[in-house]
């Protein structure tokens, strides 16, 4: 593995009840890269991202996050990676502030650093002033913003963001994109899935196009061609 690779996926396969979803998929993501995960419903986007975050168990193949196997070095990988799943989990009984405090302490963050970074992110996503709202009372968009704050809080190097623009208003989506650009500039990388193809085209510089039973890496020229006419099938 080269030093700058943040994610290496080799020969990844996954089936649900004998129905193959991913077949021998391979992907390498290096520092500063932004990869769009594209595909129609049921193509396996969430399954693929779930295999990287450890929410799904691959049937075969290997995954390395910064050189570590997420199914062996779970705690180490958790330090390098931040993720927002398609349906984010939040403790309904806790407020936003209590949830952030818990996550920052579990992640071992310095108290002042955590307070400063969470205040910045809450302000960025328009959640300042809502810290005392119970998570079960949040709207879909506010819940997703809270999950984004939790994923960004410890400044991970690799971000896995599934259906990330769902429920976000346009200004929040713009601020998220600016934050992701800053993340890349610091040497981070991210994988992004969304059904908003034009947003993906503007944010990412590579793509992984999934279809039931097959996949295509869209690098450089192929990506440029795809950006001219974003679609769920290869150009």
């Amino acid at each position: 593995m080269t030093e700058e690779s943040l994610l290496e996926v080799r020969d990844l396969s996954k089936s649900y009840r004998r129905r193959p979803v991913l077949r021998t998929l391979a992907l390498v993501v290096k520092e500063g890269e932004a990869v769009a995960v594209i595909g129609p419903n049921g193509a396996g986007k969430s399954t693929f991202l779930g295999c990287i975050t450890g929410d799904r168990i691959p049937d075969a193949g290997s995954i390395r996050v910064c050189g570590h196997d997420p199914f062996v070095d779970q705690s180490v990988v958790a330090n390098w990676m931040g993720s927002v799943p398609e349906t984010p989990f939040l403790y309904g009984e806790l407020t936003i502030a209590e949830t952030i405090r818990f996550v920052s302490r579990v992640r071992g963050m310095d108290r002042e650093d955590a307070a400063g970074e969470s205040a910045r992110l809450l302000d960025l996503f328009g959640l300042a002033g809502a810290e005392d709202v119970l998570c079960r009372e949040l709207s879909q968009g506010m819940g997703r913003k809270t999950a984004i704050v939790l994923a960004l809080l410890h400044r991970p190097r690799l971000l896995i963001l599934d259906e990330i623009f769902n429920g976000l208003d346009l200004p929040s989506a713009d601020r998220l994109i600016a934050e992701l650009d800053a993340h890349r500039a610091r040497g981070g990388a991210f994988l992004l899935s969304s059904h908003n193809l034009s947003l993906l085209a503007s944010v990412c510089d590579r793509g992984l196009l999934l279809a039931p039973d097959s996949w295509t890496n869209l690098d450089e020229e192929e990506w440029q061609r795809w950006k001219e006419a974003p679609a769920l099938t290869p150009a």
Binding site: W80, R107, G108, M109, D113, R155, R157
Partner: peptide, 19 residues
């Protein structure tokens, strides 16, 4: 922030507190 790549311990107390 904890340096990436280091493992941490001492979550048991936090889990109780969370409960």
């Amino acid at each position: 922030m904890t340096e990436p790549g280091t493992t941490r311990s001492g979550h048991l107390g936090l889990l109780f507190e969370l409960g």
